[in-house]
């Protein structure tokens, strides 16, 4: 255990949202193969701090792949080379000894850089605030077992609900579209009986907010699904498109 590798890391440094950025090179002689990618950055940061230099800013929190806070483009791939893996769960043994690694923030108009590798993803929250919910107040909604839901429907809803909102789908998309994220939420709620009443209005509100927030449209590249650490399926996009079209048609004919 604790074998080490040599790495050259080229890391994007950008002082603030309006500053111009550039790559900074770090030669690392002994990176533990058991370290996670973020732990390798921690180690660089401690050295930078000891020298009185500003450490590399990056978002992270749970470090177990569920909170969705971490995310960086590693060698051109959101969350790096291992499929179905968030950056925090990526380990240095995935890299060859002597490799050169390029690390950049998510790049999308709707995700402005805050500093270095940290970006502002509040546009995702705006999409949810526009309609990504079932309108129900806290109170007495009736017994939970009143409406049986076929297991297959509940499972589909759960599949879609596992999205962690990290934004890798946007970073991977040539159009920086948020359709995978938006359609996952629309599917999670839209297939459940509880979510039917608002299904069309929800689809419309979320898609329109997605567009005004600065995300691009979907042109079926499928890069999003490949980059998604939770394996969210592009099939949901077709579902959302159907609901969105229906919503637009319904509003024009009534």
């Amino acid at each position: 255990m604790s074998q080490t590798i040599k790495l050259t890391l080229n890391i994007w440094r950008q002082a603030g949202p309006n500053a111009s950025g550039q790559f900074q090179k770090f030669h690392r002689d002994a990176v533990s193969k058991d370290a996670s990618f973020l732990e390798a950055l921690d180690e660089i940061n401690e050295e930078l701090i000891q020298k009185g230099e500003e450490p590399i800013a990056f978002d992270h929190d749970c470090r177990e792949g569920i909170c969705g806070m971490c995310g960086m483009v590693i060698n051109g791939m959101p969350h790096g080379p291992r499929t179905l893996t968030t950056t925090c769960q990526l380990h240095m043994r995935e890299f060859k000894d002597g490799a050169e690694v390029w690390v950049e923030p998510w790049r999308a108009t709707a995700f402005p850089v805050i500093k270095d590798l940290a970006v502002d993803r509040s546009a995702f929250d705006q999409i949810i605030q526009a309609g990504g919910y079932i309108s129900i107040n806290t109170g007495s909604p009736g017994d939970a077992n009143e409406i049986p839901i076929p297991k297959a429907v509940a499972d589909l809803s759960m599949d879609a609900a596992t999205c962690i909102g990290c934004g890798a789908c946007v970073a991977a998309c040539p159009n920086a579209s948020a359709m995978l994220f938006t359609s996952a939420k629309a599917t999670h709620l839209g297939v459940l009986p509880q979510g039917q009443a608002e299904r069309l209005s929800r689809a419309r509100a979320m898609v329109e907010t997605m567009e005004t927030a600065g995300f691009g449209g979907c042109t079926n590249h499928g890069e999003c699904e490949a980059a998604c650490p939770k394996g969210i399926s592009v099939d949901y996009i077709a579902r959302l498109n159907r609901d969105y079209l229906k919503a637009v048609v319904v509003s024009q004919t009534t």
Binding site: I134, N145, P148, A154
Partner: peptide, 22 residues
Amino acid sequence: VSIIDQAVAQGVPFAREYGGLL
């Protein structure tokens, strides 16, 4: 008991049996 009712109404996809119950 109210928490489960509330969460289901919000669309929390709890695991279900084949008969559709929780």
